[in-house]
């Protein structure tokens, strides 16, 4: 089984650190979501893994070897970096044939991936006539060409229509289920939440989190319960007694932070408080991510007060 190992990876561009001491592993059989705002270093990291850029220090290996030392790499690693990276005057089929030839992949496989990516009908049109969504599909077809055990996709759903987004989500899950190591970058939380098992989160080139999706959400959010009753006075008294802090909302509901329905339901039943509505709020990846980056922003952002003092 092949994994991607990034160790103390650093890349400087003109004194600015795009990637700063990054260490993480992308394991087979899982989809690893690669999260971070634009400019956090996700694409740079992928370029370093693929040997397109040279690291300032540190290493990135696939199955223990630097990418450039892999023979016929398309048979082992499939990557989509930039859907625009193609010669526009070529047809989609020729684009894939050229790539297939480098790794002696049979021409039949080109037809297969064109079919899989849903662009078989446009295969003989020039790439410059493709929409962004079609170019993304062509890029994904290219990544799948060699049936690789490692797949890296940079913002694959960029430009895809809703149908395409569902397709890519399913496909990514399936690739991991087949035992491949899959790294998918995105700056969209809900999308990442829909397919990732594991998360690697970057901020300003540094590793902010490398953890399972569930664990990440649990660590950075608190559960919450919303409920409605006919007896507001007793409800708040009973809950307060048990150490909860219910807050009344404008719409007549109560919100209890740090509680689960399993905590609140039995309590109110025991006290005989009539409940009209009781619902747990599932914390989202977005909440967790914002909580993480809020802490990080406080830590790294220049302090406005200091600036004022200087003046």
């Amino acid at each position: 089984m092949t994994s991607i190992d990034v160790t103390q990876l650093t890349k400087e561009y003109g004194g600015r650190r795009a990637v700063d001491g990054l260490t993480f592993t992308v394991r087979p059989g899982k989809v690893t979501g690669f999260l971070g705002p634009n400019g956090a270093g996700k694409s740079t990291t992928m370029r370093l893994v693929l040997g397109l850029d040279r690291p300032t220090s540190g290493t990135a290996t696939i199955g223990g070897r630097p990418y450039a030392e892999i023979d016929e790499p398309l048979r082992h690693v499939g990557a989509l970096l930039d859907a625009q990276a193609a010669v526009g005057s070529r047809t989609g089929r020729d684009h894939l044939r050229i790539l297939a030839a480098t790794a002696r992949i049979p021409a039949r496989r080109v037809d297969d991936v064109l079919e899989q990516a849903g662009i078989a009908s446009a295969a003989d049109r020039r790439i410059k006539t493709y929409s962004l969504g079609m170019r993304q599909r062509l890029g994904i077809a290219a990544a799948l060409l060699g049936d690789p055990e490692v797949v890296m996709l940079d913002e694959p759903s960029n430009g895809l229509d809703p149908e395409g987004i569902i397709w890519i989500r399913r496909h990514v899950r399936q690739l991991a289920a087949e035992g491949r190591a899959v790294l998918v970058s995105s700056h969209l939380m809900s999308e990442t939440a829909s397919f990732a098992d594991h998360l690697v989160v970057l901020g300003k080139g540094r590793l902010l989190a490398d953890t399972g999706m569930r664990e990440f959400i649990e660590e950075w959010t608190t559960p919450r319960v919303r409920l409605r009753t006919t007896d507001d006075v007793r409800l708040s008294a009973v809950l307060a007694e048990k150490g909860f802090h219910p807050v009344a909302d404008d719409d007549g509901r109560w919100t209890v932070e740090g509680a689960r329905v399993e905590d609140i339901g039995p309590l109110t039943a025991e006290a005989g408080i009539p409940i009209l509505e009781l619902a747990g709020e599932e914390p989202s990846l977005e909440h967790a991510y914002l909580a993480l980056t809020a802490g990080e922003a406080e830590y790294t952002a220049p302090r406005p007060t200091a600036a004022v003092q200087e003046v």
Binding site: L50, Y67, A85, V87, G88, L99, A142
Partner: peptide
């Protein structure tokens, strides 16, 4: 130079990293 229009060389060098 065709390789350098639209960054097509990224794909070429991913296929042939040497």
């Amino acid at each position: 130079a065709g390789e350098y229009r639209n960054g097509a060389v990224l794909v070429s060098l991913t296929a042939v990293p040497r």
